[in-house]
Every structure is written in C-alpha cells, then in structure tokens.
C-alpha cells in the first residue's frame, strides 16, 4: 500500500509550549483513520501542519510523496472543516452552488461553469444522498445535511484523501450514525482514503480501520480490540454516563497512555 500521508519526527511548539513531540504516522491508500485525543492535545495543530498553515519546528510531512512545503496538488486533499461561515450563518447559496465552487479552479479564471460541471456537482450531491436538495439554501438545511454538502463539495474534485475535522459536532445521534455509514461506504465502495479528527471514538470505532490517539504531545496507534475493550469497560462502569464524558475519546486515550 502506498502512503498518502507520511509524518516523521514531527515537532511543533507555540512559543515555549511544546504541543507535538516526535510524532510519526502514515496514512495509506484506502485507510479510514480516526484521530482522537483530549482538548488541547494537538489535533487541530496536526491538521494545520498537514494543510500547510503552520510550519513544523522539526521533522517532515509528506503528502502524496511530496514535502508539504513544496506541495501544490491541494485539490487532491479534500478538507472538510469543523465549522465554517457557510454552516454558522445564513449564507445565501444553494447546495449546488456550494459544491460547484470546488470545480472553479478546473473551470478556470474568467470562465463560467458548463452543463457538465453542474452534472458533476449534482452527482456529488447524489453520492451523499442529497439529490433532492440541489436547489435548497444551505441555511434551510439541518446540521447533518449541511455536513453532507461539505463532504459533497470535497468529493466533486475527486480527491485522493479526505480530511475531516470533527464532522459530528452539533449533529444529533441518528444523523451521526448516517454520516459514519456514508463515510464508511465512500471508503469501502469508492476506495476513498479518510483521516477524521473526532472526539466521538465510541461510535466512530465501529466504522474506522485505524485509530490514532494523541496525548501529552505524543501519538500512539491503538488496536481496535483495545478500543472495544476499553469502551465496554467504560460502559459497565456505574459512575460513568455512557452518553457523556466517560464515553469519549479522551477517556480512551488516558486508559492507554
């Protein structure tokens, strides 16, 4: 399997505070990876480093075999943000307009989208089950539907890897399940590689193939069996509420550090 993301000896600190120390991991083709960790463990920092927004203090990041500082093929990296202006406010745009936007660089400056581009956008929306909502304003959609539009926006560019930042934030339990099923289907049937930052390891673990856990500036990979043991142990613990704190990713990380 070819690694799409390779991180070696990565170090990063904000001024004097070390956030990441000697981080190393690889994400291979067709992987579905969940990255978890407590608040402030450095999950967002890793994403910023992967997307070239921050520069590492030491170590290297290679995307599709190329160093991130030289990397140009950003359309191959589909990024789904946690929250954006689109989902926060009432941005006056339809699902189709939002998805179509990711094709603009292909269409080129000073040119307008053609029928084929619109077809492509509609196909991407159909892939996430929103074929009936093409002309719906994003502000009139539910949180789950908005997140699907964000995923369709990435899919339309046919990326090699999709990176999601906390995709289930603010979405109800039923919709979260449907979202994970969608991601698992895209991974298994379309061969899409996925790296997802999440707090919701309990529910996500049933769908992902690998789990990375960030804690105290280091990263370790957990076996799926370890996670299931840990979660079932927490389920049985009478002092913990399975739906709240004890059921979350950070608890799991603590248990294995």
């Amino acid at each position: 399997m070819k690694p799409l993301i390779e991180v070696e000896n990565l170090k990063f600190s904000y001024k004097t505070k070390q956030v990441l120390d000697d981080i190393r991991f690889s994400v291979f083709e067709r992987d579905f990876v969940a990255m978890t960790g407590a608040n402030g463990a450095g999950k967002s920092t890793i994403l910023k480093l992967l997307l070239g927004e921050l520069t590492p203090d030491a170590g290297s990041i290679r995307l599709l075999g190329e160093d991130v500082s030289q990397f140009q093929d950003w359309p191959s990296i589909g990024y789904v943000p946690q929250k954006s202006l689109v989902t926060e406010g009432r941005f006056p745009a339809t699902a189709e307009e939002i998805v179509l936007a990711n094709l603009y660089p292909q269409i080129g400056l000073m040119r307008f989208p053609k029928k084929a581009h619109r077809e492509k956008a509609r196909k991407a929306l159909a892939m996430v089950g929103l074929q009936e909502e093409v002309k719906t304003l994003i502000g009139n959609m539910s949180g789950g539907q908005q997140q699907r539009v964000m995923i369709a926006r990435v899919l339309v560019s046919e990326p090699k890897i999709m990176i999601l930042d906390e995709p289930t934030t603010g979405i109800d339990a039923q919709t979260v399940k449907a979202l994970y099923e969608l991601l698992a289907r895209l991974n298994q049937e379309n061969g899409l590689t996925i790296l997802m930052v999440t707090h919701d390891l309990a529910r996500a673990s049933a769908y992902v193939s690998r789990i990375f856990c960030l804690e105290e500036d280091s990263l370790l990979e957990l076996e799926k069996s370890q996670i299931l043991d840990e979660l079932s142990h927490k389920h049985k613990h009478p002092a913990r509420d399975a739906q709240t704190a004890g059921f979350k990713g950070e608890g799991v990380c603590h248990g294995h550090s």
Partner: peptide, 9 residues
C-alpha cells in the same frame, strides 16, 4: 463562502 477551502481548491 470559505477562504481556506478556496485556497486549498
């Protein structure tokens, strides 16, 4: 719509 996504695209 989304400056960061536009840059990445």
């Amino acid at each position: 719509l989304d400056e960061k996504a536009a840059r990445l695209a």
